[in-house]
Design a protein around this nucleic acid. Structure first.
Length: 252
DNA sequence: TATCCGTGGAG
DNA sequence: TCTCCAAGGAT
């Protein structure tokens, strides 16, 4: 849920989710479409599909117990470098670098002296490893500290250097806050009018219905025939929508 | 590697 | 209004 989604938006949804599905097996026992429906408007609904698939994999391959080692976690659908290490470190206390947008920004500023982290890179893991304390517990605390510092103090927009605990050691600050010169991640495309928006509208229609949604109803969510067809085809290809007699519905 | 994939709050 | 950007991952 936290992948590319602000923490404050995740918290209430997570609470509902865990009340309904307290274990991987309980989620795995339901149709994947129920996960997509409960995902509601969190965004990137493929994550709901992945989470359900991960619950199935954990139930099948790991006896319903979430694995603690990074390779096993990485093998789960929708789990990448960040999520695998976050679970291993924060839930199980293993020692790994946890690299997310926050830790990358803190390292970029405090250590490298750049105002922005630039696009994510495989090398980020080694950069984080290089400054990680030796013991499991201290490494865990360091990971937490870097993430919290980036999320609450060393923010992207307007960093609160006046309350930063490491401001005197910050390379970016000590260099006089130079303008970022490196290459940055490509800017997101406009959402309004995008395929993403159309996909979202179609998904909202399906989530709201307990019976198959007709093609005529889907036609009503967006005026551009070509774009609407492309969005629907994409959703079908992604497995977020399935075709049934009489229309379309969430997967089972 | 670049692009695609939602949604909504903040400035 | 409009832009930015958020505990990323898959292809």
């Amino acid at each position: 849920m936290l992948q590319q989604t602000p923490v404050v938006r995740v918290i209430p949804r997570l609470a509902e989710w865990l009340e309904r599905w307290p274990t991987p097996a309980s989620l795995a026992a339901e149709p994947s479409g129920e996960a997509v429906r409960a995902w509601d408007r969190l965004g990137y609904p493929r994550r709901a599909l992945n989470l359900h698939a991960a619950a199935v994999a954990i139930t099948d391959r790991h006896g319903g117990v979430v694995p603690s080692d990074v390779p096993s976690l990485l093998a789960l659908p929708g789990v990448g470098d960040y999520t695998a290490r976050a679970v291993s470190v924060f839930a199980f206390g293993e020692r790994h670098p946890v690299v997310d947008v926050n830790t990358r920004r803190v390292i970029a500023r405090a250590i490298t002296g750049n105002g922005e982290p630039g696009p994510a890179h495989k090398r980020d893991l080694a950069d984080m490893e290089a400054i990680l304390p030796e013991s499991d517990r201290d490494a865990q605390l360091a990971n937490i500290a870097f993430m919290e510092l980036g999320a609450l103090v060393c923010t992207a927009r307007s960093p609160r250097c006046d309350v930063c605990p490491i401001v005197e050691a910050c390379a970016w600050r000590n260099a006089g806050y130079p303008e970022f010169a490196g290459k940055r991640a490509p800017t997101q495309k406009k959402f309004a009018g995008s395929d993403r928006q159309v996909r979202g509208l179609i998904m909202a229609e399906l989530r709201a219905s307990e019976v198959p949604v007709t093609l005529a109803e889907i036609d009503g969510v967006w005026p551009d025939d070509v774009q609407r067809a492309r969005a629907l085809a994409g959703l079908l290809a992604d497995g977020l929508v399935v075709s049934v007699p009489g229309g379309f519905e969430l997967p089972s």
